Amino acid sequence: MQRVNMIMAESPGLITICLLGYLLSAECTVFLDHENANKILNRPKRYNSGKLEEFVQGNLERECMEEKCSFEEAREVFENTERTTEFWKQYVDGDQCESNPCLNGGSCKDDINSYECWCPFGFEGKNCELDVTCNIKNGRCEQFCKNSADNKVVCSCTEGYRLAENQKSCEPAVPFPCGRVSVSQTSKLTRAETVFPDVDYVNSTEAETILDNITQSTQSFNDFTRVVGGEDAKPGQFPWQVVLNGKVDAFCGGSIVNEKWIVTAAHCVETGVKITVVAGEHNIEETEHTEQKRNVIRIIPHHNYNAAINKYNHDIALLELDEPLVLNSYVTPICIADKEYTNIFLKFGSGYVSGWGRVFHKGRSALVLQYLRVPLVDRATCLRSTKFTIYNNMFCAGFHEGGRDSCQGDSGGPHVTEVEGTSFLTGIISWGEECAMKGKYGIYTKVSRYVNWIKEKTKLT
């Protein structure tokens, strides 16, 4: 034993070699072989497995989906700052455009905790909710729209109204504003409101030439003092309507412009014939205590009207009353817009006519005020429907199939267009061939041609 100890002390290297040989010859039971080890760690190889990531292109799944990435790591994937920024906006807080917040056709661009709407022409605001041009839906104005110097929408209202708090709607500024039905039992019968379409306001006024200088022999019209197929109006439903009495009662109609003036057809009036105007009328054979009678003290036909040349060209006249009318729910003026808007309103496509005229061709006159909704007829169809001249200051309205029309005794009465609950004068009943005849239409004086003249002559002093 002493000898062994001496050998170990003198030859430590020998001992180490012996131990190493023993270990190498022993069977290893701690580690699995290569094949079995792979069965336990069965993990798919990654895209760049075996390579240094710093030297390969980034992978979106590896960089940002398996674990949260930084902007720089995302930049490695896209290799483009702009594309990385677009991805980053949604990656950080989701897609803010998912709810489609942009209105009126706006395009949404996502941002971090926010979004941006790219608005089409005519709109602005956070969600493109603000109209900035009158060309689109009248700028959301209830009545009139004008573009300011910086191309912003400025709404306005006709006389007797003021802008509401929203700067879009119009509200009454006087007790009985024009064009409004205020009798409670008839307010439910107000005709369907007309909503502004998209309009090209630059070209809204037709490029028409008034044929002022045409000389033409007097034409022989049949029954051209021209509501057939209409309905009984309720008291106060058309408070701007008046009836004219002269040699015979209810020979023509008219509309209240203001307390002192009536507008009617020029062919209705004769110099030297006494005319009485009755406002607030409903049943011409009954006294309903809503009527107001006034005498006409002055007749002003349009300066281009000449019955000797043509009885229905420039067929418009103004009547001055001896005493002002007292405005109330049964006696209310009709609204008159400017030339541009009167023309736009007419193009809405349908209007209402009213009167006490004959209820059928050569038949009896109506006792109760009649009204009828009539569609506008395109000019080409209008011209083809008659052998008589249709001037540019006239328009056609009615039904091709016949059966409904204005008729004798309705002449001078109103053709009105309702705009968001307020009625505007767009025409004056003038003439036609018979009444409600198939293929024939009622012919009306186009008020847009005469609004400046009306307003100039009827100013209240």
Results as ranks from 00 to 15, higher is better:
residue 406 S to Y: 13
residue 325 L to P: 00
residue 313 N to L: 08
residue 330 Y to T: 02
residue 300 I to W: 05
residue 358 R to S: 11
residue 16 T to I: 09
residue 437 M to H: 10
residue 260 K to D: 03
residue 3 R to A: 13
residue 316 I to V: 08
residue 83 R to M: 06
residue 395 F to H: 01
residue 391 Y to K: 15
residue 347 K to P: 01
residue 376 L to G: 03
residue 397 A to L: 00
residue 87 F to R: 15
residue 350 S to W: 15
residue 370 Q to M: 04
residue 69 C to M: 04
residue 175 P to I: 06
residue 426 T to W: 00
residue 440 K to W: 03
residue 29 T to G: 14
residue 420 E to R: 15
residue 444 Y to A: 03
residue 409 G to Y: 11
residue 89 K to I: 06
residue 66 E to N: 08
residue 314 H to S: 04
residue 229 G to C: 11
residue 264 T to W: 01
residue 408 Q to A: 06
residue 325 L to V: 03
residue 41 L to Y: 12
residue 278 V to R: 07
residue 95 D to G: 09
residue 114 S to Q: 10
residue 225 T to F: 07
residue 377 V to I: 12
residue 341 Y to A: 09
residue 211 L to M: 15
residue 427 G to V: 00
residue 435 C to V: 03
residue 285 E to D: 13
residue 135 N to H: 13
residue 122 G to T: 03
residue 79 E to A: 14
residue 49 S to W: 08
residue 145 C to K: 02
residue 447 V to K: 00
residue 362 K to V: 05
residue 107 S to C: 04
residue 144 F to G: 01
residue 260 K to T: 02
residue 109 K to D: 04
residue 339 K to F: 09
residue 120 P to S: 07
residue 390 I to L: 14
residue 79 E to Q: 15
residue 364 R to I: 08
residue 377 V to W: 03
residue 152 K to Y: 10
residue 460 L to C: 08
residue 30 V to I: 14
residue 198 D to L: 07
residue 100 N to Q: 10
residue 448 S to A: 12
residue 264 T to D: 01
residue 233 A to Y: 07
residue 277 V to A: 06
residue 112 I to E: 15
residue 440 K to V: 04
residue 204 S to N: 06
residue 384 R to S: 10
residue 42 N to H: 12
residue 56 V to Q: 15
residue 355 G to R: 14
residue 335 C to E: 00
residue 388 F to C: 07
residue 2 Q to W: 15
residue 195 V to N: 14
residue 118 W to M: 01
residue 25 S to Q: 09
residue 436 A to W: 06
residue 432 G to T: 12
residue 406 S to T: 15
residue 370 Q to C: 05
residue 347 K to F: 04
residue 316 I to C: 02
residue 166 N to K: 02
residue 94 G to V: 12
residue 69 C to Y: 04
residue 289 H to T: 13
residue 121 F to S: 05
residue 33 D to M: 10
residue 364 R to S: 12
residue 113 N to F: 04
residue 281 E to P: 08
residue 162 R to D: 08
residue 8 M to H: 13
residue 399 F to A: 08
residue 70 S to H: 08
residue 402 G to Q: 15
residue 21 G to Y: 13
residue 55 F to Y: 11
residue 306 N to K: 11
residue 288 E to A: 06
residue 192 A to Y: 12
residue 311 K to G: 05
residue 370 Q to I: 02
residue 341 Y to L: 06
residue 31 F to A: 15
residue 435 C to H: 04
residue 38 N to Y: 10
residue 258 N to E: 02
residue 238 F to W: 08
residue 92 V to E: 15
residue 435 C to D: 04
